[in-house]
Design a binder for these strands. Structure first.
Length: 311
DNA sequence: GTGTTTGTTATCAA
DNA sequence: CTTGATAACAAACA
């Protein structure tokens, strides 16, 4: 496969920085607006009864938007929650009402990936063939749920259900409780697993996916295939710092876009240009300038690393 | 047609 | 019981 082809087939899906970017965007645009209509595609993304889903949400408002790992939790009044998981190709795009668009900014095109001319989403062009659901608000603005691959879902949950889901997730990387001692304790509980598997395990630390797992290992200079039990104290500390720094920087730049990821306005994330290993297989290592980035299957996932400067 | 892509869950094994 | 490893899932593309 040519290098260009490799670049084009790279994909990404929302992980913590992307989901958090969407959450913040939606917080600015849809909170406390009355939901007047909900449209569900025939290929429904709703878990459970779609008619019941619509009737229970219609007329209510989203009063709060939280994130649990990669899951978005929209609080409706009356202890009901809309859980949205974007999985691989899900998008939540907000389109302002007609009145706002008419007097709004000029038409803007959004592109992603270093010059590959791959459009993300222009809210004006919605719905698309992959729009699976749309929420219409009283000011005629809309929230579209797009999902090409249909792994993502919308699920209405009660308090108990939501709490159960919440308990299944591990610690949030930006929580005050997530300190070095806690990280070591987490690793100690998974001594038999590989580092990469531990980083990806949502029940341990919530929100790290394939891209950031690889970037975190590279940043820390540790091979992702290392058994967790083999990590030295110094390496554990480096990994802990890397989790925070990589995710913080990705968040700062609005996440990573190769192909499908778009924020709540349909725009790409800018962290793509800061990636050091993910999608760089076959290319020279940016840090040691000697190694060639390798790609292998580790813990069941495509994993990129520098065999020279990651130990 | 085959292999690869990914987050999560189901399933089986130890 | 826990923990881990792996398959399965949907859909697209090379």
């Amino acid at each position: 496969m040519s290098l260009l082809a490799k670049l084009i087939v790279r994909k990404n899906m929302p992980e913590l920085p992307e989901v958090e970017t969407i959450r913040k965007g939606l917080e600015k645009s849809i909170l406390n607006k009355k939901i007047v209509q909900i449209e569900i595609a025939k290929k429904s993304p709703v878990k459970g009864n779609a008619e019941k889903f619509v009737s229970e949400i219609k007329g209510k408002k989203f009063v709060r938007i939280e994130r649990l790992g990669k899951l978005l939790v929209f609080s409706l009044s009356a202890k009901k929650y809309l859980l949205v998981h974007l999985k691989m190709t899900g998008q939540l795009i907000y389109a302002a009402g007609k009145k706002v668009v008419a007097g709004g900014p000029p038409h803007q095109k959004f592109w992603c990936g270093g010059g590959h001319n791959l459009p993300v989403i222009n809210p004006d062009t919605l719905p698309t063939a992959y729009t699976r659901a749309a929420f219409v608000f009283s000011d005629d603005s809309k929230l579209y749920f797009n999902d090409m691959r249909r792994f993502g879902y919308l699920r209405l949950a009660g308090e108990a259900e939501k709490n159960k889901v919440e308990r299944a997730y591990g610690i949030e990387p930006f929580s005050k409780k997530f300190n070095l001692a806690e990280f070591k304790r987490i690793l100690a509980g998974r001594e038999k697993s590989l580092l990469k598997a531990a980083l990806l395990d949502q029940a341990l630390i919530a929100g790290i996916g394939n891209i950031y797992a690889d970037e975190i290992c590279f940043s820390a200079g540790v091979l992702p295939g290392r058994p967790a039990a083999s990590l030295t104290e110094k390496e554990k500390a480096a990994l802990f710092r890397a989790i925070k720094s990589v995710l913080r920087q990705a968040l700062k730049y609005g996440g990573t876009t190769f192909r499908n990821y778009a924020n709540a306005r349909g725009q790409k994330g800018k962290f793509t240009e800061f990636l050091k290993v993910y999608g760089r297989q076959g290319m020279k290592c940016l840090r040691c300038k000697k190694g060639i980035i390798q790609k292998r299957k580790i813990a069941g996932r495509g994993t990129s690393f520098c065999g020279n400067c990651q130990k």
